[in-house]
């Protein structure tokens, strides 16, 4: 996890705090193995001093490395009850254990998703420069992801510094699916009236005033990609947001200002919004007009999140058949 990831995490946390006045304190827990405390604190300061005071004073940083003292910014953060609770929660042991997902950083997974989405669409080899342009990540992040995928024998290097997936990268795909909840930046919304989700109604609202940084994902997009998609009904509306211009409050204001965000995993979500980290959203214009369609990889991840495993597998097989022809 490099400085760019740290910057992105701070901005993401600041957005969450700005959008939700009920949050008194948001604390970023940063695993410090790859970045010293001095560097981390410096990068933290570079970003947070750009933020407005009402947001900045509600942000905190907790730097953890196994065997080292926990560091905080601001320094008195360590006395905050929430932070003390975090310390007691076993988080340090989790950090020390370096979970299996450690190799799949948000940067790596985003590069992987771009490679896979372009491959599923039948695009040819892609150069490193093209990947940098599409992802807007640093060269080391892109190169590291390529190196790891080559090591896994899922990617091959070609001439002209281009690369191409060898086939459907099932090993990495399964890992990405397994931790996609952690990798994706997702906000979930419920209806305050307890009405059953009405995705077509929300989509109708969005279609009246489409936003070029919003694309439809989930079941609705799966039906667009695969006309024989086998599911009755639409459980919720999934939307994917590009990183340029994305504004969640503006989106909610357009389609349903009464929606309420929730972190309750058992809630019946009306709307689920996934925010991309990369620069090129890979949206596909809808031939019928209206909102664009998210790329097939995001759609597949939406289906897995919905526990529609069989339908996701059928969509993969369909996309593979379509690619071959």
């Amino acid at each position: 996890m490099g400085a760019r990831d740290l910057h992105a995490s701070i901005v993401e946390m600041a957005l969450a705090v700005e959008e939700n006045p009920a949050i008194e304190l948001a604390c970023l827990v940063w695993r410090g193995e790859r970045m010293s405390w001095a560097r981390t604190r410096n990068e933290w300061g570079r970003v947070t001093r750009l933020l407005p005071e009402p947001v900045r004073r509600r942000l905190g940083l907790l730097w953890l490395v196994k065997g080292s003292e926990t560091k905080c910014e601001p320094p008195d953060l360590g006395t905050h009850p929430v932070v003390r609770q975090l310390e007691k929660s076993g988080l340090r042991e989790e950090v020390g254990a370096a979970p299996a997902s450690a190799g799949l950083s948000p940067g790596f997974s985003e590069v992987f998703k771009v490679l896979l989405a372009l491959w599923l669409r039948g695009s040819g080899p892609i150069t490193t420069g093209e990947l940098i342009r599409r992802c807007r990540f640093s060269y080391p992040t892109i190169a590291g992801a390529i190196e790891e995928l080559v090591r896994r024998r899922e990617l091959r290097r070609l001439r002209n510094r281009s690369v191409e997936l060898v086939g459907f990268p099932r090993q990495t795909w399964q890992q990405v699916v397994a931790i996609s909840d952690q990798l994706r930046r997702t906000i979930r919304f419920v209806s305050p009236s307890g009405r059953p989700p009405d995705p077509e109604f929300l989509l109708g609202r969005l279609s009246k005033t489409p936003l070029d940084w919003v694309a439809v994902g989930g079941v609705i997009a799966a039906r667009r990609l695969f006309p024989e998609f086998d599911l009755k009904g639409t459980p919720r509306l999934d939307l994917t947001l590009g990183s340029r211009g994305a504004n969640v409050p503006l989106l909610i204001g357009r389609i349903d200002p009464s929606l309420e965000s929730t972190t309750d995993p058992s809630a019946e979500f009306s709307l689920v919004v996934h925010r991309l980290r990369r620069d090129d959203p890979l949206f596909e214009t809808s031939p019928q007009g209206g909102p664009a369609t998210a790329d097939p990889v995001e759609v597949l991840l939406d289906l897995h999140e919905l526990r529609l495993e069989r339908q996701a597998a059928e969509l993969v097989e369909y996309l593979l058949r379509k690619r071959r022809t």
Binding site: P192, S193, G194, S258
Partner: peptide, 19 residues
């Protein structure tokens, strides 16, 4: 028949207000 709670009725008011 809808099992609407008092809190959800307030949610209906919010929806009606916006819609």
């Amino acid at each position: 028949g809808l099992r609407v709670s008092v809190e959800q009725l307030a949610g209906v008011a919010s929806e009606l207000n916006h819609d």
